[in-house]
Write a protein that binds this DNA or RNA. Structure first.
Length: 551
RNA sequence: GAUUGCGUAGCUCAGUCGGUAGAGCAGCGGCCUUUUAAGCCGUAGGUCCUGGGUUCAAGUCCCAGCGCAAUCACCA
């Protein structure tokens, strides 16, 4: 490179690596006759499936026959080879060139398998390809499944082809990619460099499909409701705003599907659910991503009790299945039931889950009755809640509860906290026997709130009053996106049957079931700030990052 | 949004009190038909996140910015 222009931030050393890979690509194509961008390959097995084809008996009898043939020379009987043949494709993650024999480890999403390529067993160009292959290239191999002298299951290549030549500099092959930022930004590298990553997303897919099977088996209908909404309702979060050009209409990305799913009940669907993305314009941390997957469930003529049974059965069943998966993978499993590790914790998903009333937990954590507001306020001041005086009684109760009572919940046992004060759950139906509390629960697992459920409010007049009251309390910023959903109220006037409703944070549940510490470890492409100048490999003409955006 | 920590080769990481920029892997050249965390020998590779400042001298100290992480706030 004679000169590096400012628009070309690629460091010289990297161009050297890329240049050598480009030279190899040319050689593979021009000298060895392989298409560096590959073509269709039929009958491919996964690496895991190929490994499973190994048969010790066939391997031993082949080895013996080959040995005998060698000593007997020409007089030997023809060698019988009963080893099963397999064709696989994957990235080269290890490469040991022993001269006339090359050992490679090949990886796909199911795992690794060793391949050895002997100069005497393949065509000359195929051998050269295997010999010169780079870490990260995808190769296709075909041959019998046996093992090596060291006992490693191994495909003895009879054919080698190029799937695709990789031009990028690969990550370190023993440590992989460990910088979390690089793992998220270049997930496509993370997924093959760190097999654990690929496993988590395979588990996530199985969990979500099991949830669907569970819901379908119970007669729930899966529906899809709008993500683009003229009014962002159903939760108390800040929405993302957008705009439809042809209609010249402001729109919001939904913060919850709730109000549409309830309309489905009005329309006559008895049991509905939706698994889909919500978008909330709030902070980001270990358990929050701006877009996240939630399941919402509504059951006509159910209530928060039916939702509790459903939730408990669902999560229990998922945990049992995860335990079975871990057992199948050879991991140690707790003999005492469905116990899964989550970081330092061992979470026990045995039924029944813990159930505790808000009022009871409050009493235990705070040491006074929640309805004794004077005592509660005294406690609030004691723990340093200075703005206590400005808050309504029940809001103080709630804050004191979160501070002193929630920590009492055993993080190792899924726990339903039930019967919240009505005043802190404005859209929930008050209990018939005690209107100060309402029919709502939250489920906590591992110290995280995984989801709430309610006996839904279906009186249009009360709903309208509560909406209106909420709007009155909105500050300036809030009132720019909070609008009364009159059509929803109108739907309640048509008549929504009494119902139970449930929301479960799927990402958080997947975190718990896959022993992932951060929500970003269970979201393939979590939102990151965009990089300014000097962005890694993006080729972006990174404008000085400080410009614009920030306010 | 606040606080703290981190940012050095493609990757994983050292870098002492402020005094010539280091290692392993990947790459490149050579040897080898059974390797297993990376076979053996040799070789090359740098915007020390960016921009200022202090200093004879800054990867190192100071200020500002960018990014990531953790904790808190908001929220689920």
């Amino acid at each position: 490179m004679p000169e590096t222009t400012p628009q070309d931030p690629v460091p010289l050393s990297e161009s050297e690596i890329v240049a050598s890979r480009r030279a190899k690509l040319k050689r593979f194509r021009d000298e060895l006759g392989f298409d560096p961008y590959g073509s269709r390959a039929d009958g491919l097995l996964s690496c895991a499936a190929a490994r499973a084809l190994f048969n010790e008996e066939a391997h031993v009898s082949y080895e013996n026959a080959a040995k005998a043939a060698k000593t007997a020379g020409d007089a030997a009987a023809p060698i019988v080879d009963n080893r099963v043949r397999a064709r696989i494709a994957g990235r080269i993650v290890q490469h040991r060139d022993m001269g006339k024999l090359v050992f490679l480890f090949v990886r796909d999403a199911t795992g690794d398998i060793q391949v050895s390529v002997s100069k005497s067993a393949v065509k000359a160009n195929e051998f050269e390809l295997a010999k010169a292959a780079d870490y990260g290239d995808i190769l296709v191999f075909e041959g019998p499944v046996g093992r090596t002298q060291k006992g490693e299951i191994c495909i003895w290549a009879a054919g080698v082809d190029l799937g695709v030549k990789s031009l990028a500099a690969p990550p370190e092959k023993w440590h992989g990619l460990s910088d979390p930022e690089l793992r998220y930004r270049r997930r496509y590298v993370d997924m093959y460099a760190n097999p654990e990553t690929a496993k988590v997303f395979a588990m996530r897919a199985r969990i979500v499909s099991r949830i669907r099977r569970f819901m379908d088996a119970r007669g729930f209908l899966e529906v899809e409701t709008p993500v683009l909404q003229p009014i962002a309702g159903g939760a108390a979060a800040r929405p993302f705003t957008t705009h439809h050009n042809a209609l010249d209409m402001p729109l919001f990305m939904r913060i919850a599907p709730e109000l549409y799913l309830k309309r489905c009940l009005v329309g006559g669907m008895r049991k509905v659910y939706e698994i889909n993305r919500n978008f909330r314009n709030e902070g980001i941390d270990r358990s929050h991503n701006p877009e996240f997957t939630a399941m919402e469930v509504y059951e006509a003529f159910g209530d928060y009790g039916t939702m509790m049974e459903l939730t408990e059965s669902l999560i229990h069943e998922l945990a049992v299945e995860m335990v079975a998966e871990r057992q199948a993978a050879g991991l140690r499993v707790d003999a005492n039931g469905p116990v899964l590790p989550w970081g330092e914790l061992q979470i026990n998903y045995a039924k029944p889950f813990v159930r505790v009333k808000f009022e009871e937990l409050f009493r235990r954590g705070v040491g006074c009755e929640m309805r004794d507001f004077a005592a509660v306020r005294a406690k609030a001041r004691e723990i340093g809640l200075h703005h206590e005086a400005k808050l309504d009684d029940w809001l103080v109760v709630n804050e004191v509860f979160e501070e002193l009572a929630e920590p009492l919940i055993d993080p190792c046992r899924p726990t339903f906290v039930t019967d919240y004060p009505s005043a802190v759950s404005p859209l929930t139906r008050p209990s018939k026997s005690d209107p100060a509390i309402c029919e709502r629960w939250d489920i906590f697992i591992g110290g995280m709130e995984v989801g709430p459920a309610y006996t839904e409010l279906n009186d249009p007049d009360i709903q309208l009053a509560k909406f209106t009251e909420q709007l009155k309390g909105a500050d300036d910023e809030e009132s720019t996106f909070r609008t009364l959903d009159e059509d929803f109220v109108e739907s309640l006037r048509v008549g929504m049957p009494p119902a139970g409703g449930l929301g479960i944070g799927i990402d958080r549940l997947v975190m718990l079931l896959t022993d992932s510490a951060s929500i970003r470890d269970v979201i393939l492409f979590p939102l990151l700030k965009s990089m300014g100048a000097g962005a890694a490999n993006d080729g972006e003409q990174g404008a000085p990052a400080a410009e614009g955006k920030k306010a």
